[in-house]
């Protein structure tokens, strides 16, 4: 079983697909749930406090906007644990939406720099492409250590 970073990390569909094919999805929902369930300073809606952008300094320098560093404090630890990644480019907002383009660019770079197996996909535009989209994800996940292949 492999730990698979997904992009968009907010995609519940992608997270569900990874879990269905026997791997552990690394998604924003898990990370946010952990933050919300950990006792600490009350800072709704995500319980991210001004300390978190400072943690993000590990991935982005101080001159990088606080929103990018705060996001990296969420996604960076996921990336650290990732053994594989699935990237869906140009995804529809309803599939999963990542708010900040600069964070996305940094995440893309760090995923590729890490040298882990990466599946790069375009978001499907019709049913036929949708079927192939799911099949490609299945083939990729099956090929990972602990996969069904």
């Amino acid at each position: 079983m492999a730990k698979v970073f997904i992009f968009p990390t907010t995609s519940l569909i992608l997270s569900d697909l990874v879990a269905r094919f026997g791997h552990t999805p690394l998604s924003a929902a898990m990370q946010i749930r952990e933050i919300i369930q950990t006792p600490g300073l009350e800072s709704p809606p995500l319980q991210i406090t001004p300390e978190d952008p400072k943690k993000g300094l590990r991935w982005a320098a101080v001159e990088v906007p606080s929103g990018v560093r705060g996001r990296m404090s969420l996604y960076g630890p996921l990336l650290d644990r990732a053994e594989a990644a699935i990237i869906v480019n140009n995804a529809d907002y309803s599939f999963g939406c990542m708010g900040c383009a600069r964070t996305n660019e940094l995440l893309m770079f760090l995923i590729r720099k890490k040298g882990i197996p990466v599946l790069d996909l375009e978001y499907p535009a019709n049913e036929e492409e949708g079927v192939e989209f799911v099949a490609a994800i299945k083939r990729f996940l099956d090929s990972l250590p602990g996969g069904r292949a």
């Binding site: 800072s43 995500l46 406090t49 606080s66 705060g70 969420l74 708010g99």
Partner: peptide, 8 residues
């Protein structure tokens, strides 16, 4: 960005 900066 405010929710991710901890300032919301």
């Amino acid at each position: 960005g405010p929710e991710y900066s901890g300032v919301q």
